[in-house]
């Protein structure tokens, strides 16, 4: 909290949204995404973490037609447009579920500081690296 940036007009804090649940079966993933989208308007330093069953939220080819629930997975691919560009996925959680990065959607953003080059938003990190990411946050919302 001591290294919190204060621009004078506006406080910028480091926000981390921790996603730990599968996308369907409970509403946590969808309502977490709603917070992320609304929160983007506040121009904070936002990161998302996906661990435990939360890694399923980023799976390719989600199809909810047979369960009568809206498939909201395309929204993750639009996060770059909201300047949400740091998605940390825990490697161990993927491996424990027999998944790899190839099973995840391709999520990118255009880097305005680098001639709008298209860059990947997803970063695979191991458990201890994710712990370090968490340690440097000001606000953590876990869903």
């Amino acid at each position: 909290m001591n290294d919190m940036a204060d621009t004078g007009e506006q406080t910028i804090k480091k926000f981390l949204y921790v996603n730990r649940k599968a996308p369907y079966g409970t509403i946590y993933a969808l309502e977490s995404l709603e917070v992320v989208l609304i929160g983007a308007a506040f121009e904070q330093d936002v990161s998302l973490a996906f661990l435990d069953d939360g890694v399923f939220q980023l799976m390719k080819g989600q199809d909810t037609a047979d369960i009568g629930v809206k498939n909201f997975s395309p929204t993750y691919r639009a996060l770059g447009d909201f300047e949400v560009t740091k998605l940390f996925v825990e490697k161990e959680s993927l491996e424990e579920r027999g998944l790899s990065e190839d099973d995840l959607m391709e999520i990118t953003y255009e880097d305005e500081d680098d001639d709008w080059e298209e860059k990947p938003s997803i970063h695979l990190v191991n458990r201890s690296e994710l712990a370090a990411v968490m340690a440097e946050q000001d606000v953590i919302l876990s869903f």
Partner: peptide
Amino acid sequence: SGLGQLIEAGIQSDRLVTFGD
């Protein structure tokens, strides 16, 4: 009120404490 009030609480509070899963 809206979700913005949650973000604002995170910005304005020294500690944001969450209860529940």
